[in-house]
Simulated scan of single mutants.
Amino acid sequence: MVGIGNSEDQTTDEVQRRKRRARSFGAQAAVYAEHRPDYPEAGIRWALEAVGDRDGIVVLDLGAGTGKLTGGLLAAGVEVIAVEPDAGMRAELVRLYPGVTALSGAAEAIPLADGTVDAVLAGQAFHWFDQALAFPEIARVLRANGVFAAFWNTDDNTVEWVAGLRDVSRSSASFPPSSSDDPLPAHPLFAPFEYAEFAHSQRRTAESLTASIGTNSHTVIISPKERAEVLGRILDYLHATPETAEGEFDFPLRTEVIRAVRRANTPR
């Protein structure tokens, strides 16, 4: 499972690097919107299962970025409120989804009233949250028995050429590989978290997959010289790999989802 720990067990250098990576996406907003994958419908349905029988479901897309999860939520027929701290990312979301309410804010300070939404979902964002501050805020804005869920799209490294791509993609800013044994988060305001995994894929070419990886924070915050070297290495690898050398191909992904229901009768 994707690493979801807080920064409490990290060195000062690691904490600072994490902060730089978390703030790195705005400059890549348009490229991010073009090249990052969406999320599978089955995963979204699973995340919202606990509130699926409600009328007029309202979902907060927290750390919404350019709206990669927003689009799937709209397709599911729910009302979406987006909260995103980066102005560049938020502007791209508004351009793509002008009918969605998009607010400046963060998981640690959500600009909504108590009991506003039925669900809070986070796509590729929960690992940036300060959980000690974010969980009470998420619980505060949820209605009774509302649900929180977080999504991650991860490369399917069980595929040999994808595992090879992971190796050539690493930069000096890459985090250590996360463990599949990483524990699920826990908080007294929420029932125990559940985990599910969904097969997913994205149609790519060697060039567009290289561009996708170029939106990852570990390739954004490094020097221009190292960035050019890393992206060049990726493109060379893809052009030399039979499965990806020519034309379009399906890039295999796994979408990991965790979900938990807000406990009843707990203070906001």
Rank of each mutant, 00 (worst) to 15 (best):
E137H: 02
I81N: 05
G67I: 05
E8C: 05
V257H: 01
G5T: 08
P40Q: 09
V80E: 11
L142T: 05
A42W: 11
V261C: 00
Y195M: 08
D86N: 15
R143E: 12
R23I: 00
G115N: 10
V59P: 01
A186I: 01
F151M: 07
R268C: 03
T11F: 04
T219G: 00
T12V: 13
G63F: 10
R143V: 06
F249R: 05
P176D: 15
G115S: 14
T154A: 14
A30G: 00
N216A: 12
A22Y: 10
S179P: 07
L73T: 10
G214D: 10
S24Y: 01
T210S: 08
G115F: 00
L184R: 08
V15T: 13
G71K: 13
T158Y: 07
L133D: 05
S208R: 02
A186T: 12
L93H: 06
M89T: 02
A30D: 15
A102I: 07
D86G: 11
N157G: 07
A33F: 13
I81M: 06
Q16T: 06
F175C: 01
Q131K: 15
D13R: 14
I110E: 09
G105W: 02
A150W: 00
A75C: 13
S171I: 02
E226H: 03
A75K: 15
M1E: 01
F249H: 03
S201K: 06
H127Y: 15
L96N: 09
I138C: 04
V120K: 13
A228I: 03
E194Q: 14
A119I: 13
S201N: 08
N6K: 10
P111R: 10
G52Q: 09
W46S: 08
L165S: 02
A191T: 07
Q131T: 12
A122I: 04
S7E: 11
G72W: 13
I138P: 14
T154H: 03
R36K: 03
T266M: 15
L231D: 04
V162D: 01
